[in-house]
């Protein structure tokens, strides 16, 4: 009887065992020593990652389960999901292999850069899990940038890289603005709240539209009287537009706050990716 057995880890391939005595010896050997023989071929994993053979990559990692320490497998899975952008699974395996993952500076930096622009909830989970002192200056810089995005008013912009300072200053300015102040300004002078939010064009459009509505309402009241249906219709239109402009200004400030934050983080990600970006493997 010829029996072919392939052990993947060490690359030694086919054993042909003919005699019953050797077969027994081989099986006993496999039973006790095979788990120890399973080693991850990292250069092969790197190759699979570089060529983007996701199917083979996943199969290889899955095949190593049970053969290699669980920590190593979880670490490889975390890197796999980081490469193929599955944030929740990445975090799941990252927490299972945290110490090992943090010790891989390339992957750790890549993950930090990656999460700068990810979904807010997962982003929070990630940055809360990052140890305060990692020993990596790159990670510390990225974390400072993330902290600046969370607490802009408490952060001094000069600690950020020069390339990001103008974006941060814009973001910081927008964060100090209050939606209710925009609403109050728009109530006083139609469209002024939009100017306060930083939307000049919108201010001009709103102001002149409101002015036109006002003049046509005034004309109809003057010539037809306030109780005339057309005057009531004109005044109603004016009122609706006036209220909409107040609400729009309130919403604009909130929108601008979000937009400047997103823009700041996108630019930060681009900057760090360009300066600190290294291959995952």
């Amino acid at each position: 009887m010829r029996l072919k057995i392939r052990t993947f880890g060490l690359g030694n391939c086919i054993e042909t065992i003919k005699s019953g005595k050797w077969r027994l010896f081989y099986f006993i050997f496999l039973f006790f020593f095979e788990p120890a023989a399973g080693q991850v071929n990292y250069s092969f994993v790197k190759h699979l990652s570089e060529v983007k053979l996701s199917k083979e990559h996943f199969t290889y990692i899955s095949q190593q389960s049970g053969k290699c320490p669980e920590d190593s497998i979880n670490y490889l899975k975390a890197k796999y999901y980081l490469q193929y952008v599955n944030d929740s699974l990445f975090l799941h395996f990252y927490f299972k292999s945290k110490s090992l993952f943090i010790s891989d500076s390339n992957a750790f930096v890549a993950a930090n850069i990656h999460f700068l622009t990810r979904d807010t909830a997962l982003q929070k989970v990630w940055y809360n899990s990052v140890p305060t002192s990692t020993g990596s200056k790159k990670v510390e810089q990225i974390n400072t940038c993330y902290s600046a995005s969370v607490y802009p008013t408490k952060t001094d912009g000069s600690i950020l890289p020069i390339a990001l300072q103008s974006d941060f200053a814009r973001y910081k300015r927008s964060q100090s603005k209050k939606p209710w102040a925009a609403a109050a300004l728009s109530a006083a002078v139609p469209g002024l709240g939009k100017m306060y939010a930083g939307r000049k064009r919108s201010f001009y459009f709103t102001f002149f539209s409101q002015l036109t509505y006002g003049v046509q309402s005034y004309e109809s009241i003057k010539k037809l009287g306030v109780s005339h249906p057309f005057s009531i219709f004109s005044l109603s239109l004016f009122g609706v537009f006036y209220a909409a402009n107040i609400y729009g200004s309130y919403q604009d400030v909130r929108k601008v706050k979000k937009e400047t934050k997103t823009q700041f983080l996108i630019n930060a990600q681009k900057y760090y990716h360009f300066n600190f970006g290294t291959p995952l493997y």
């Binding site: 003049v215 046509q216 004309e219 109809s220 057309f230």
Partner: peptide, 8 residues
């Protein structure tokens, strides 16, 4: 005679 309204 609502000329502004007509224009608007």
């Amino acid at each position: 005679n609502l000329y502004f309204n007509a224009f608007f």
